[in-house]
Amino acid sequence: MGSVRTNRYSIVSSEEDGMKLATMAVANGFGNGKSKVHTRQQCRSRFVKKDGHCNVQFINVGEKGQRYLADIFTTCVDIRWRWMLVIFCLAFVLSWLFFGCVFWLIALLHGDLDTDYKDDDDKSKVSKACVSEVNSFTAAFLFSIETQTTIGYGFRCVTDECPIAVFMVVFQSIVGCIIDAFIIGAVMAKMAKPKKRNETLVFSHNAVIAMRDGKLCLMWRVGNLRKSHLVEAHVRAQLLKSRITSEGEYIPLDQIDINVGFDSGIDRIFLVSPITIVHEIDEDSPLYDLSKQDIDNADFEIVVILEGMVEATAMTTQCRSSYLANEILWGHRYEPVLFEEKHYYKVDYSRFHKTYEVPNTPLCSARDLAEKKYILSNANSFCYENEVALTSKEEEEDSENGVPESTSTDSPPGIDLHNQASVPLEPRPLRRESEIGSRR
């Protein structure tokens, strides 16, 4: 089982795998120059863009038009607004034209077009017409509009002379109601789609790998820009990579689940303020055997998904993003964004995407760390350097704002901070800030 798991979770494809794949392509008759073999020097295209759209195009789909027309309502909801407006206008105009032609044909076959009612006051002739005051196609078209929109100006009306005319008036009224219901329903469904809710759900630009509770963890940050909550919010993550099976089958995008606390339930989050999602790199993680150097040379993509129900409509929305291997910062942490004021908490989104480097973060893999092949620094050293990194950030910001350097908390000259780390230190809580992250 261990060997199978290692093969499945191998992220960085070796040169031997690339040569094996190329040999397979030639042997199977696919070596026509169009096949692409992804190596370390040639990274694959992003499968999920940063804005959440999937970078996929469908080609050679059989009976595409028929399949889309069979699900016309979903098609109308998914198309762009400009095409929705075109369909909206065409549906009414074509129905008016169709029934206008029908009423014109009825008048033509009944002989109503030969009668001039402007110079004739004989009401008996008017009563013999199928539709009064309809003696041309324009008049028939206007009567069709008046019937379907129930305008009723009063000059044109159907008589009991022709039952077919009466039937067409009733039929057009029913068709008009159906068109109204369909168009209004599609427009309302399109307006109520929770897709735009994703514009106020954000992911951090970069993911980070750092120590948390004595273990290497992959972390990324999510935030909600609205005050309205995302009900039943939960997160998922998958690692996408290519691999070759033991039988020699090439899988271009193998999807591997990344555990973010599904078993323990901590994948469900209360997204009021930005939260750091934590994936513990343990023996079940696809990143277990990867060191910093392996991450730098790897070719994979981590897709992160945030799902929840919109509070206003109770409709489920899904926000997506992805991180390539070069977008994962090893040995970094996110800057705090949640600050405790006197009577409330304040979230500073200008710090949302910012990170700071944490010294002495192990550069080895989580496996080597678990097997004690890498000796961690003293816990006080880690905490102290973590505090120094934050303090230096604040000093830089104070210097930019014009604060005198004498007010900063610099260490005395001639003292090495790293050498001082081995000395037991008193706890130094942050002056006014605390970061709330997901705790395992």
Rank of each mutant, 00 (worst) to 15 (best):
T409I: 04
D122Q: 01
H38E: 15
N32I: 11
F339C: 12
L363Y: 09
T276S: 11
S242V: 13
D257T: 06
E400Y: 05
G154L: 02
N7Q: 09
N55G: 07
I183F: 11
S322P: 00
L324Y: 09
V48G: 00
E301G: 01
D51A: 12
Y250F: 10
T313V: 09
A181Q: 06
F203C: 06
V102Q: 07
V77A: 11
E280A: 12
V337L: 11
A366K: 01
E232D: 05
T159R: 02
A314R: 10
S406G: 11
V337E: 02
N401H: 07
C383S: 14
K128L: 15
S264K: 14
D121L: 15
V235P: 09
R243S: 06
Y334R: 01
L230N: 11
I174W: 10
E335A: 06
I72F: 11
G261R: 10
F30I: 13
N326C: 11
V158W: 04
A325T: 09
G308V: 11
T39I: 09
S127Y: 08
P252T: 14
L201P: 04
L290T: 07
M84N: 05
I183D: 02
R156A: 03
A379M: 08
I79F: 10
S136L: 00
V187E: 03
H234S: 12
F30G: 13
L97C: 04
Y250D: 15
R243N: 02
K196M: 14
E397Y: 08
K346N: 03
L363G: 07
D368Q: 08
D180F: 14
V272A: 14
P404M: 09
E15D: 10
R67D: 06
V126G: 03
W83H: 08
V187Y: 07
Y288G: 01
I244L: 08
E405W: 06
E341I: 05
E387H: 01
I178K: 02
G261C: 13
F137I: 04
L417A: 11
P252L: 08
R320T: 10
L338C: 14
E400G: 13
F203Y: 07
L21I: 07
V102L: 06
R212L: 09
E301W: 02
N259Y: 06
N206E: 14
F99S: 02
G308M: 07
S365H: 00
A22F: 05
I178F: 12
G308L: 12
M24F: 09
V272F: 12
S173M: 10
R333N: 15
C383V: 12
I145G: 05
E280V: 09
L225I: 14
S14F: 05
I151E: 03
C383I: 14
I151A: 09
V388A: 14
I59S: 15
R428N: 13
M191T: 06
H53I: 09
E247Q: 12
S422F: 10
A366Q: 06
E394L: 06
L376H: 15
N206H: 13
F382Q: 09
E161Q: 14
R212W: 04
S264M: 11
I164F: 14
A298I: 09
S392Y: 04
S422N: 13
A314Q: 04
Q66A: 08
S204D: 00
D160K: 02
A421R: 10
N224C: 07
E433T: 11
V388F: 12
S434C: 06
I295A: 06
N386S: 15
S13L: 07
I79C: 10
A140V: 02
I164N: 02
N28I: 03
L425V: 09
S10T: 07
S10K: 05
S381T: 13
R46C: 02
V187P: 05
S95T: 15
V278T: 06
P413S: 15
N401K: 08
L69D: 08
F262M: 12
R46N: 01
V208H: 00
G100Q: 01
S3G: 06
R5N: 11
W330A: 00
F99I: 00
L430P: 07
A70P: 08
S3K: 03
I178N: 03
Q238F: 14
I174R: 07
S411M: 11
S10V: 05
S365L: 00
K342M: 03
T75C: 04
F382N: 03
V102I: 05
A389F: 10
A370M: 07
R197G: 10
L240G: 00
V158A: 04
I151Q: 05
T74N: 12
L306H: 02
R431P: 13
R8L: 04
K36A: 13
D263Y: 03
L417T: 08
Q420I: 13
P274K: 00
D112W: 00
G29W: 02
I436T: 14
V303F: 07
R80I: 05
N386H: 10
I269S: 08
R5Q: 04
D368S: 08
S14C: 11
I151V: 10
T75H: 07
N32F: 05
D282G: 15
C162L: 07
E341Y: 10
V423M: 13
E161P: 02
F167E: 01
N326V: 03
V423Y: 08
I209G: 01
G223K: 11
V93P: 01
F141W: 07
W330V: 00
T316Q: 09
E16H: 07
R367A: 04
Y344R: 15
N135V: 07
R44T: 13
K342S: 08
S95R: 04
A25W: 08
T316P: 08
V12G: 15
V48Q: 07
P424Q: 13
G33T: 13
A233R: 06
E133T: 04
N380G: 08
H53W: 06
I328D: 00
G261D: 05
T407L: 07
F92N: 06
G65S: 10
M309Q: 07
T74Q: 12
A70G: 10
H353T: 02
I244H: 15
Q420C: 08
A370L: 06
I375G: 15
K64V: 13
H332Y: 09
I328V: 12
H332T: 01
D368W: 06
C162S: 01
V93H: 01
K125V: 15
S322F: 00
T6R: 13
A366L: 00
P427F: 04
V26Y: 09
S350N: 10
N32P: 12
F339L: 15
N360Y: 07
S377E: 14
E335W: 02
W330N: 02
N206L: 01
T115R: 03
P362T: 00
K241H: 09
I258P: 01
L306S: 01
C364W: 07
R236W: 05
I72K: 15
D180A: 07
Y384T: 14
K49V: 04
T138H: 03
G100R: 00
G402L: 09
D71A: 12
H53D: 09
M24V: 07
V126D: 07
L240K: 02
N401S: 09
G223M: 12
S399F: 13
M219E: 13
T75A: 09
V169E: 02
A181P: 03
M309H: 13
R367C: 02
R226G: 13
I277Q: 00
T147Y: 03
E283Y: 03
K292Y: 14
N360S: 06
D254V: 09
Y250W: 11
V102G: 05
D299Q: 07
L324F: 05
K292S: 12
K292L: 02
Q255T: 10
N224A: 13
S365G: 02
S45H: 14
S136M: 00
K195S: 07
T313N: 07
N386M: 05
D257H: 06
K34W: 05
L376S: 13
F262S: 05
P286A: 03
F141Y: 12
L108M: 15
Q293N: 14
L225G: 10
L142P: 02
I79H: 07
S45G: 11
M315R: 09
Y344I: 04
I209A: 01
I151N: 05
I179M: 10
K125C: 07
P336H: 15
K196Q: 09
S434H: 12
V102Y: 01
P163W: 15
A210L: 09
L105R: 02
S273L: 04
S264V: 11
A186L: 04
S322N: 00
Y356I: 15
D78E: 12
A325E: 02
I277K: 00
Q255N: 10
K292A: 13
K190M: 11
T159C: 02
A312V: 03
P404R: 07
V187D: 00
D116R: 10
W81V: 05
I145K: 01
F167K: 00
F382K: 02
S144K: 00
L240F: 07
E146I: 02
H38P: 08
E395C: 09
H343L: 09
S381K: 05
F98I: 15
V56H: 10
E387Q: 02
T391W: 07
E280Q: 11
R428D: 15
V26R: 12
S392L: 04
R432C: 13
Y334M: 04
R226Q: 05
